[in-house]
C-alpha cells in the first residue's frame, strides 16, 4: 500500500523545503529504493538544489491541448464562443474570422463538444518540463518546471503527479505555498499532510488559512513548528486548544539558516536541530511502517 505525505504551508519561507528534503534523505536511507520526493512547487522548484549528487534523466516536456479552429470547415456559428466560459474564442462572422486565444484557454474541451462542423482540433502546447532523477544512495527525486508566465500550475502539478505515480511505495510531495488551486492539486491524494509553520503572527495567520482548507477537504494533517523560539507560545497553545496534532518542533538556529542558504542541509547540522529532526523523522518513519503493517493485517 503506497503512502503519500505532503509537506505544505500557507506562508512561504517557513521551512517546507528544508523539512521535505530532510525527510526524504532520512527515509531513503532507512528504506533504500522505496522513497521518492516530488517537488510540486512548479513555479519555483528548489528541492533539487540540495542534491547536487543526484543524476537527472533527460527533461520530459509536458503538453496541454489547445484547440485550433479550421477555418475551412468553420461556419462561424459562434456556438463554441457560447460554450467557452473563459472567453478564449473570438469569432467574427462578418469578416470570417475565428481564433482561439491560448493564453485564456483552460483546455477544458467544451468547444470541441460545441462544434457541430468538426472544425476544432486540439494541438499540443508545451506548458513546462518534468525532471526525474535518482540519488546514488537510492531514492528518486523529481519535479516540474512551469514555463515562465504560464498560468497552468494546477495542470502541471497534476501531470507531474501522474508521471511519477507508482515509482516508489513512499512518496513525499513538497507543495507550493498558499491555499489556492495548485496547493489543492499537490495535496489532493496525500494520506498525511504536514503543515510547516513558524511561531510568528504571519506564520500563525497563514497556518489558520491552511487548516481551514484541509478541514474543508477532510484531510488528515499535523503541524510542524519550525524556527521555534523565534516568536511566541501562541501557536503551541492554539494547536493544543484546537486538538491539532503537533508533529514536532525544530528550534531556530541561525547557524542552520546559514547552511540552508549555501545549499547544504545535511552535514554538520547544529546539535539541537539534529536532535529535533531525528525525533520527528523517527516518529514519521514509525508511522509509515505502521501504515504498511495495518494494511498487511487487513489482508
Amino acid at each position: 500500500m503506497p503512502f503519500k505525505i505532503a509537506i505544505a504551508s500557507g506562508k512561504g519561507g517557513t521551512g517546507k523545503t528544508t523539512f521535505a528534503v530532510n525527510l526524504f534523505r532520512y527515509l531513503s536511507q532507512s528504506m533504500p529504493g522505496k522513497v521518492q520526493l516530488v517537488d510540486c512547487d512548479v513555479e519555483e522548484p528548489n528541492d533539487h538544489i540540495f542534491f547536487p549528487e543526484a543524476q537527472f534523466e533527460k527533461l520530459e516536456k509536458v503538453y496541454r491541448l489547445v484547440p485550433e479552429i479550421d477555418q475551412s470547415k468553420c461556419t462561424y456559428c459562434r456556438k463554441c464562443v457560447e460554450y467557452c466560459e473563459f472567453n478564449a474564442i473570438v469569432v467574427i462572422p462578418t469578416v470570417r474570422f475565428a481564433e482561439v486565444n491560448s493564453s485564456l484557454c483552460h483546455s477544458c474541451g467544451a468547444c470541441i463538444v460545441a462544434c457541430e462542423d468538426d472544425a476544432i482540433n486540439e494541438k499540443p502546447e508545451e506548458i513546462g518540463t518534468i525532471r526525474r532523477g535518482f540519488l546514488p544512495s537510492g531514492g528518486r527525486i523529481s519535479g516540474g518546471t512551469l514555463k515562465i508566465g504560464s498560468s497552468m500550475q494546477t495542470m502541471m502539478i497534476r501531470e507531474l503527479k501522474k508521471a511519477v505515480s507508482g515509482e516508489a511505495p513512499i512518496t513525499i510531495f513538497d507543495a507550493p505555498p498558499g491555499t489556492s488551486c495548485p496547493v489543492v492539486a499537490a495535496i489532493a491524494d496525500a494520506d498525511l499532510i504536514i503543515l510547516v509553520s513558524e511561531p510568528t503572527p504571519f506564520g500563525m495567520y497563514d497556518l489558520k488559512l491552511s487548516i481551514d482548507l484541509l478541514r474543508e477537504l477532510r484531510k488528515p494533517f499535523g503541524v510542524l513548528i519550525n524556527k521555534s523560539g523565534l516568536g511566541t507560545d501562541e501557536l503551541h497553545n492554539y494547536l493544543l486548544n484546537q486538538g491539532i496534532e503537533l508533529i514536532g518542533s525544530i528550534p531556530f538556529s541561525r547557524a542552520y539558516a546559514g547552511m540552508y542558504a549555501s545549499g547544504n542541509l545535511f552535514n554538520d547540522i547544529p546539535e539541537e536541530v539534529a536532535f529535533a529532526f531525528s525525533e520527528i523523522l523517527h516518529k514519521l518513519h514509525d508511522r509509515i511502517l505502521q501504515h504498511e503493517g495495518d494494511h498487511h493485517s487487513e489482508r
Binding site: Y83, E85, H106, C108, G109, A110, A114
Partner: peptide
C-alpha cells in the same frame, strides 16, 4: 468544488 474549474462542460452534456 475545489477541483472544479468552472468550465460548465458537464452541465452542458
Amino acid at each position: 468544488p475545489v477541483q472544479c474549474e468552472g468550465c460548465r462542460l458537464c452541465e452542458r452534456i
